[in-house]
Simulated assay, not measured.
Amino acid sequence: MTYEVSVTRDGAWWMVAVPALDAVTQARTLGEVDAAARELVALDTGTALDEVNISVHVEAEQTTGRDDQSLRHAR
């Protein structure tokens, strides 16, 4: 199973949410999001870390006023 991960900026932190698990964690940088999300899923489901599949959706900060700005990547 691939878990959808939603990432939003909250002050100095990135909030990392996994809606399917109703779980949230945080990361200091975008570079830490992948590991934080995988660890959250692994701990919550009992799945081995190397077997966790995620799809990350990062909400871009609203700088242009467009509501549809986003970055997507899958892992």
Results as ranks from 00 to 15, higher is better:
M1Y: 05
M1L: 04
Y3S: 01
Y3R: 01
E4S: 01
E4N: 09
V7D: 01
T8G: 08
D10P: 10
D10R: 14
D10K: 11
A12V: 11
W13M: 07
A17S: 15
V18R: 13
P19T: 10
P19C: 09
A20E: 12
A20S: 11
A20R: 04
V24M: 13
Q26T: 03
Q26N: 11
R28M: 12
G31E: 03
D34R: 05
D34F: 08
V41F: 00
A42E: 07
D44P: 03
T45K: 04
T45D: 05
A48D: 15
L49T: 01
E51P: 05
E51F: 01
N53P: 11
N53T: 15
I54H: 07
S55G: 14
V56L: 13
V56C: 05
H57L: 14
H57M: 12
H57E: 08
E59P: 13
E61H: 10
E61P: 11
E61V: 13
Q62K: 14
Q62E: 14
Q62S: 14
T64G: 05
T64E: 13
G65K: 00
G65W: 06
G65T: 04
G65R: 06
R66L: 14
R66S: 13
D68Q: 05
L71E: 09
R72Q: 11
R72I: 15
R72P: 03
H73Q: 07
A74C: 10
A74K: 10
A74S: 13
